[in-house]
């Protein structure tokens, strides 16, 4: 067994008196596609934000390739250089063009030359059907297009792992497909991903492992066949009965 790319042990996170995650453990190997499912408020988003060090944690250890990143002496930017994150609300920079959104971090953080950065962005935008949008401002695009741009922005810096936080939750059903197409392609290409999602069919299709979060912890995890086919826990069954119908 190789060192997991991401390893979480005994993670605890609370906001004031509200404990969101308690004693949560998770291990993600390279090329894993881990889907986090669970009802709203079960801690999926918080877990992803903790992994990207966007939230201070209250206890536990997070490791990236065996190295503890929950150490206060770690520079969080060193971690984020290697991790890509996409948010539910797209969070594109509205004052920059699509192309500039995609080249900003490449040039400023990764020291890529301007031309090379543009070539990579144009290439990725083209691959995902956004070639003609490079000069547009984010607000002029549809939700699906914006979220695809956000994915391209995250992919532009070649992250080792992608964290996707309910990226289709704000989209209407016909736009969900075009966004998931990118995720599917990346999964096939071997990208390591941890994604919080409400799209059970999609989780079943792309996940190597599905984790059901409940009351701040991972109540049950397994392959999609195991979890969707024969859930062990009563609460998992109840949740799936509600969302699968």
């Amino acid at each position: 067994m190789t060192t997991p790319l991401i390893e979480v042990e005994g993670l605890r996170k609370s906001y004031g008196d509200r404990v969101v995650l308690r004693d949560l453990s998770l291990s993600v190997q390279r090329h894993d596609v881990v889907c986090l499912i669970g009802s709203s408020g079960s801690g999926k988003s918080t877990l992803l934000r903790c992994l990207d060090l966007l939230e201070p944690i209250d206890d536990g250890v997070i490791r990236l390739e065996g190295k503890e990143i929950s150490d206060p002496l770690i520079d969080p930017r060193e971690v984020r250089r290697r991790v890509g994150m996409v948010f539910q609300a797209y969070n594109l920079f509205p004052h920059l063009t699509v192309l500039d959104n995609c080249t900003l971090a490449q040039v400023k953080v990764h020291g890529v030359g301007r031309d090379e950065a543009r070539d990579r962005a144009v290439d990725l935008l083209g691959r995902f059907g956004l070639a003609d949008k490079a000069g547009a401002r984010p607000d002029a695009l549809s939700g699906g297009q914006q979220q695809r741009v956000a994915l391209v922005r995250a992919l532009c810096t070649s992250p080792e792992v992608l964290l996707l936080d309910e990226i289709t939750a704000a989209l209407d059903p016909e736009l969900v497909g075009e966004v998931l197409e990118i995720v599917r392609a990346e999964a096939r290409a071997g990208m390591t991903m941890v994604l919080a999602t409400h799209e059970m069919d999609f989780a079943r299709e792309v996940a190597t492992r599905v984790c059901f979060l409940d009351a701040g912890g991972i109540l049950e995890q397994g392959t999609p066949e195991e979890l969707f086919g024969a859930p062990r826990e009563e609460r998992t069954r109840r949740f799936l009965a509600r969302v699968l119908r």
Partner: peptide, 14 residues
């Protein structure tokens, strides 16, 4: 929940 040894150590560093 009581803070783990690692957490206490981390808080001390912080």
């Amino acid at each position: 929940w009581a803070p783990s040894a690692r957490q206490l150590e981390r808080e001390q560093v912080a």
